[in-house]
Simulated assay, not measured.
Amino acid sequence: MAAFVHFLGLCFLGLLVAVPWGAIAADEDPLQDVCVADPNAQVKVNGFVCKAMPNASDFVSPLLRKAENTNNKLGSSVTVAGAANFPGLNTQGLSFARIDYAPGGVVPPHNHPRASEVLFVMAGTLRVGFVSSDGNSTLFTNTLYPGDLTVFSRGLVHFIINVGDSQAFSLSGLDSQNLGASLLPTVLFASNPTIGDDVLGKAFNLPQKEIDMIKAALKG
């Protein structure tokens, strides 16, 4: 019996090594052809309740047709089409995004806890990068041109900046209908309620005056 239990344990460990854990963390597979989201449903589930009578328009979205205003402090604008605003995506495990950039515009360091991202450059010159989570914090960075693709793995911190002298835009496909996004500056210095200044001071070796300046800058 002990030998059999030991054998089962080895089989289980083998499974742990063989199974792609990123796939386990992904959205569940759909169990039917379509499940158009009903955002007005009173019942709340992990996703959206299916609409009783879908129609053809539920499977089309104009959300990404036009460039959005980049006249802001970051010089960028992100438009995401997910199940919440594109009901036909419900249960498909997909989202799509358009990002517009002014010259010098940036999407600050952030991560998506539930999605990997493939980014395709449509116009302009972008510098992108992500940081490994293996303990070495290795930065992988590249300069991209129209027609180039890059990938950001699920959960890894990444950034994008327009390094050209004209407007740029890119399109991204993500493997979750509700990808989530944690912008590091906001998460760390502008959470609600805020992380204690004693914690931030120790973590970043910052005096109180500089913590106050960072928080004020993010609010302004």
Rank of each mutant, 00 (worst) to 15 (best):
Q167S: 14
R154M: 14
F152N: 01
S182Q: 11
S133I: 08
A181H: 05
P146W: 00
T143D: 09
G180R: 10
D175H: 09
G173F: 10
V157I: 15
F152T: 03
S132F: 02
I161Y: 00
F130Y: 14
Y145S: 08
T141V: 13
S182W: 11
N192H: 14
N178P: 02
S176K: 03
Q167E: 13
S191W: 02
T138N: 04
L156K: 03
L156W: 01
D165F: 15
G135A: 06
G129A: 00
L139V: 12
S170W: 03
N178V: 06
S166R: 15
R127F: 10
T143A: 09
L183A: 11
V151I: 13
F140L: 09
A168D: 03
V151P: 00
S166E: 12
L184K: 10
G129S: 05
T194C: 12
L174H: 01
G129T: 01
A181Q: 09
N136E: 04
G180T: 09
R154H: 12
D175R: 03
R154G: 09
S170P: 05
L174P: 04
Y145M: 10
L184E: 04
S170M: 08
N136A: 02
F169G: 00
G129Y: 00
S176D: 02
L184N: 10
L171P: 06
V163I: 12
N142S: 14
S132C: 08
P146N: 01
F169W: 11
H158Y: 13
S153K: 13
L149T: 05
N142L: 13
D175I: 06
G147R: 09
L179A: 11
I195Q: 04
S153N: 14
V163F: 07
T186I: 12
N192R: 15
I161L: 09
D148A: 12
F152K: 00
T186V: 14
G164I: 06
R154E: 11
T125K: 04
S153E: 13
I161T: 07
S132Y: 04
D197K: 15
V187F: 12
S133F: 10
L188F: 10
F189Q: 02
F152C: 02
D165N: 14
V187W: 07
L183M: 13
